[in-house]
Design a protein around this nucleic acid. Sequence first.
DNA 1: AAGTTATTGCGTATGGCATACCCTTTGGCG
DNA 2: CGCCAAAGGGTATGCCATACGCAATAACTT
Lengths: 220, 220
Amino acid sequence: MTDLLWEGERRSGRGPKPALSLDRIVQAAIAIADAEGLGALSMQRVATDLGAGTMSLYRYVPGKEELINLMVDRVVGDPPTLDSESWRTDLRTWAHASHDVFRRHPWSLSAVTGKRSLGPNETAWAESALAALSGTGLSPAERLKVVNVVNGQVRGAAQISPGHGPVLNIEALSRPEVAQRFPSLMAVLSSDEEFDMADVFEFGLQRILDGIDALLQTRS
Amino acid sequence: MTDLLWEGERRSGRGPKPALSLDRIVQAAIAIADAEGLGALSMQRVATDLGAGTMSLYRYVPGKEELINLMVDRVVGDPPTLDSESWRTDLRTWAHASHDVFRRHPWSLSAVTGKRSLGPNETAWAESALAALSGTGLSPAERLKVVNVVNGQVRGAAQISPGHGPVLNIEALSRPEVAQRFPSLMAVLSSDEEFDMADVFEFGLQRILDGIDALLQTRS
DNA sequence: AAGTTATTGCGTATGGCATACCCTTTGGCG
DNA sequence: CGCCAAAGGGTATGCCATACGCAATAACTT
């Protein structure tokens, strides 16, 4: 039944000594995805990197989908410790820590979109963000919604990070008859203002925290 | 040259009458993705549905990746008209319209994550959101950052929509020794409060708009 | 000590996939 | 009326996930 994610590897002593381990497989898979992206991840590739036959992997992992879930939960790791006594500081720490994960492992963003099962580490992250809001007087459902806004910002910022997100078609935009249809956009592009990606994230995060704060103010 | 997205179909009169068209192909592909998800989308499948040979598609589209870009830009369509005189109302309208697209075509969320090229429609959406902020006194870079926060919320909410996002492992969470590690989460799950998904989106959106408003207040 | 059996590694086979190549057919233009 | 650009699409290649089965292994049983 159930879940390698939650149960971990369980093998009873009978039979030959296993040459691999779930851990080694997951780690090798992560190394591939880190270096060459999810597109380069195949069972054959993982097996080759481990010096094993492709089908041997299936003695440890039921399939690729489950492997990716394991990779995500591994890469996500433990949530940061939040002990600042201030929900705002805690939530900010949480958001930055989560953002860091996506920056270090850009493939995880794609791995995390779509239907899938949450692992223990990811569940622990949810727990820690919710716990940070326990002193705020927000209702349980509100706390969840707050966590979701913050989480949206984390992923939103990760999604547009340079080299891993959408790019404007500069060639088309450089033709005047095209450019003229997007005046506000051109204004942004031609503004001299320096554009720091890290700041995109922090700016949005602060707006969100301000918005949450405003809600709390109306209640106190 | 380059981009079908921006140039559209161009074929010169010579040769046999084309049996298909870029439009019909994109539409058929969207129908498949809508009905069965991106996973069911293959060139062979699209061709079969159109009663054509697989390779014929390549007379119209350079490859699958470009096809998906075309699907996205088609599905995204024109941005809503924003004429309320209030940036807040406009941004809310924009956000809901965008959210609707993802609700109607859940596959588009995955299609939109990762490196890719923006089409004219998507660019027009960016333009329209930026234009809505023109009267606010925000700097060009700030306007872009604001749009990004809102966009993050749209996608964040779409990402957790039921049936298309992460699901908690209820089985694991129902074991006491596991549940006890996630007290705040359990509090949310066991709260009787009704939980409306549409409200997750609207709640977060309002917090964000409040936060933007707060910034504007400090400047006026 | 010998047999039993669960378990492992993994070769092979299957069926799907994107797409390169190339041949045949078509029909507007010269 | 013939030329040739462009369309249809069959075939081939090489990758992929994964089902199945077999031989080797080693703990447990007797």
